[in-house]
Design a protein around this nucleic acid. Structure first.
Length: 217
DNA sequence: CTTCAGATGCTCT
DNA sequence: GAGCATCTGAAGA
């Protein structure tokens, strides 16, 4: 399942020459026609869901609750409207830009902002540990809808030409937890399907490793 | 710790 | 016109 395979991969968005990158730590599979929680349930094909029908590797970005963007990566072949919702990433590059973006574009908060240098790993992860938040931090909006992304591996057999893609930096979740999806109570029985994948956390931070060594960002 | 309302605009009926 | 693959701060237990 693409959703599980994406855990540990790195989502990259280059903006103004700055690389914003995060390790994917939470995903959900939306299985299309048979999935009552999917925008394409029953084969619904509209202006918005048209993107989901693109072949695997395209970005599906839509507006939710009038405020936030959510991003999926399409799965399967052309005409099969399946995708993976990216629900969380762990920032590994461009964190300062992400923080700035979060303060500027995120909803206003009363608490005075901390200096970037004072942020704990947990607070850094909090910038991108939700589907709406990660899009704010990584400057992902609907202008990226329908964008073709290319999966590359660390051997560089394929190279992404775009500034928005997924690659393998060699990180792995210590353990992947499988559970029901979130925020889809309207979907009846489909809400119970175990199609959510998360990197196991410790102290509010995902447990990640590289080359067998644990890593904390 | 837990609920709860409000923000806001697009999509689909 | 209703509802939504969310997030935040405030209020309550």
């Amino acid at each position: 399942m693409l959703s599980e395979a994406l855990i540990g991969k790195t989502l990259v968005h280059r903006v103004n020459g700055v690389e914003l990158a995060g390790i994917i730590t939470e995903t959900e599979a939306y299985m299309g026609e048979i999935d009552r929680a999917s925008h394409a349930y029953g084969g619904r094909r509209t202006a918005r869901t048209e993107t989901l029908f693109l072949e695997g590797g395209h970005a599906y970005v839509y507006l939710i609750y009038g405020i936030y963007s959510c991003m999926n990566i399409t799965a399967n072949e052309d005409g099969v409207p399946q995708g993976t919702l990216i629900r969380a990433v762990c920032p590994i590059a461009g964190q300062e830009e992400m923080y700035r973006s979060y303060l500027e574009k995120g909803r206003r908060r009363k608490t005075p902002p901390k200096a970037f240098e004072d942020l704990s790993p947990k607070e850094l992860y909090a910038l991108t540990n939700g589907p709406g938040k990660l899009c704010v931090a990584m400057s992902i909006d609907r202008s990226l809808d329908r964008r073709n992304m290319v999966l590359v591996n660390s051997g560089n057999e394929k190279i992404a030409e775009s500034d928005f893609f997924v690659r393998d930096d060699g990180y792995r979740a210590v353990e992947i937890v499988r559970a029901p999806r979130i925020g889809i109570d309207y979907a009846g029985e489909a809400a119970e399907y175990p199609w959510r994948f998360t990197a196991k956390e410790k102290n509010g931070v995902p447990m990640l490793e590289k080359d067998g060594c644990s890593v904390i960002f």
